[in-house]
């Protein structure tokens, strides 16, 4: 088992190249974040539907891309020995099952409740009092907007 620290510290990058890479990755991360934000603003107030779900899907893909750049370049994993990459990445593949199974389970539980538990369905469809309405009840600054609903 021989490795001296100097050999580890040097990862075979030239100085300028390494700094250049850092700034390049910074730029990529910023651009990805800005795209995410633009998508976030775009889907504001959009009704649920195919378009909204595909925007959400794209945001998740952008999130994974950001994760790749942070882990690969900032945490330097991309330049490590293949053995090390595999011991980190392979166990994380468990997440694929983890996410799919649990979200499917949650969704199925909701559908079951809505189908067989009419009390749950009724309770979750009650409208919440808005702030203005509570204020009017208390008699504080009555609003002109029609309260008849």
């Amino acid at each position: 088992m021989e490795h001296n620290s100097a050999a580890i510290a040097e990862h075979g990058h030239s100085d300028d190249g390494a700094v250049k890479e850092i700034w390049k990755v910074t730029l990529i991360l910023s651009v990805l974040t800005i795209i995410e934000l633009v998508l976030g603003f775009w889907m504001m107030g959009m009704p649920d539907g195919a378009l909204r779900y595909s925007i959400k899907g794209s945001i998740v893909i952008l999130m994974l891309a950001k994760a790749f750049y942070i882990v690969g370049y900032f945490m330097h994993l991309k330049h490590e020995v293949r053995n090390l990459i595999m011991t980190i990445v392979v166990p994380l593949l468990l997440f694929i099952w983890f996410i799919v199974a649990f979200l499917y389970e949650g969704n199925s539980y909701k559908n079951l409740k809505n189908t067989y538990n009419s009390y749950y369905k009724e309770r979750t469809s009650q409208q919440q009092e808005t702030k203005e309405e509570t204020k009017e009840e208390k008699g504080e600054e009555p609003k002109k907007s029609d309260a008849a609903e």
Partner: peptide
Amino acid sequence: FTFGAFLIAYGTTRFATN
């Protein structure tokens, strides 16, 4: 995995709620 479990619990609950 700890954070993943937290976030997946959040996702599951969100999927299971009207």
